[in-house]
Design a protein around this nucleic acid. Structure first.
Length: 336
DNA sequence: CGGCTTTGACCTGCGC
DNA sequence: GCGCAGGTCAAAGCCG
């Protein structure tokens, strides 16, 4: 299954095309190995965005344009988070992003797209991409009725939502009513997910969007809780989970689920950090489902330049779903 | 006062 | 069926 999906997720020229992965309905979990840790500044050239704020560049790389614009994840962070980035991952994502933006991305040792010194490149690490549930495996079953209810509400019915809310006052019946009101059957695919690790002292990194925390849970076998956030923009159902690695408390694991249906507030504010042409356009490219389709069906439109062959092998893992299940295996895979 | 966080309760799926 | 763990809800409280 991994192999098949790996095939599916590769660009016709053999390059990973991240967006296609997302479009394929899979989760994408990218983990950056500890031993290849490098600062964001060092990593930025790999991403080929020398003219970008390094944080933006790297966040682009890290996100592979799932959230392509103005993430600004590491832009002037309060605690100077350091992205633990697998060099190959940086290269590869940089390539993806760069190609999409029509930029020539220099790849490989010492190159970098920009001015500067790139750190040593070690090609033996890998990025692990977890593509799950494209077929709705893990959570087709695991997806809760409530989830489906909510999604239905989001799609169709604010009325329904209001009704549900209205019944909340009646206490315990609320959930049952919600469940009953829910349609049966038809499995819904889970939103694509994307996870990455950052080294940061702050749990909730600024990424340009506004989030509302709606829950926090203790994580089994971890002293650190997992926090649940939801995008505050109306009708945007993007969620993210933030937890700290119990193996390395300095590492924050962030998992995004879903696609934003809007531009980030940061972008609307006209951030000057993001110098790529027409950022809002690109945001729509990636965030608009129809655009997704467009792109995935004709990727070469966005790949005007040729690039060296990929320097790393994409590993598509089965859907482990939960980070704590994925991370150890990934780290293990990176061991020589 | 609106927006956000906190936190206990609740629901669901899964394994035994 | 039961217990566990993940995920979500929503009341209460906090804060600017």
């Amino acid at each position: 299954m991994s192999q098949e999906r790996g095939e599916l997720y590769h660009h016709q020229h053999g390059h990973l095309f991240l967006n296609e992965m997302i479009n394929s309905g899979g989760d994408l979990s990218c983990f950056f190995s500890h031993h290849e840790a490098m600062s964001v500044a060092d990593a930025a050239p790999f991403a080929g965005f020398a003219d970008y704020d390094y944080g933006a560049a790297l966040s682009r790389a890290a996100f592979g344009d799932v959230r392509c614009d103005e993430l600004g994840l590491f832009d002037a962070p309060p605690a100077k988070p350091e992205l633990l980035i697998d060099v190959d991952a940086a290269i590869d994502y940089g390539a993806v992003v760069g190609r999409r933006h029509g930029l020539d991305v220099s790849i490989g040792g010492g190159g970098g797209g920009g001015d500067g010194g790139t750190g040593p490149v070690t090609p033996n690490s890998s990025v692990s991409s977890s593509s799950s549930e494209a077929g709705g495996d893990e959570e087709s079953g695991g997806r809760s009725k409530k989830d489906r209810i909510k999604e239905e509400e989001e799609e169709g019915g604010e009325e329904k939502q209001l009704q549900a809310r209205g019944s909340d006052d009646q206490g315990g019946e609320k959930s049952k009513k919600l469940v009953k009101a829910k349609n049966k059957g038809e499995k819904r695919q889970r939103e694509p997910r994307f996870a990455f690790m950052t080294k940061s002292e702050v749990d909730h990194l600024e990424d340009g969007y506004r989030w509302r925390k709606y829950g926090q849970k203790a994580v089994k076998n971890s002293p650190y809780p997992r926090s649940y956030y939801r995008c505050t923009t109306q009708k945007c159902s993007v969620k993210k989970r933030v937890e700290r690695s119990h193996e390395d408390p300095s590492i924050v694991i962030t998992t995004y689920e879903g696609r934003h249906t809007h531009q980030s507030p940061a972008n609307l504010r006209g951030s000057s950090h993001f110098l790529a042409p027409s950022p809002s356009f690109r945001a729509q490219e990636f965030l608009n489902p129809s655009s997704h389709h467009h792109m995935s069906t004709n990727p070469t439109m966005y790949l005007p330049i040729s690039l060296p062959p990929p320097l790393q092998q994409l590993q598509v893992l089965p859907d482990y779903g939960l980070l704590q299940d994925i991370i150890p295996s990934f780290i293990h895979q990176n061991q020589p």
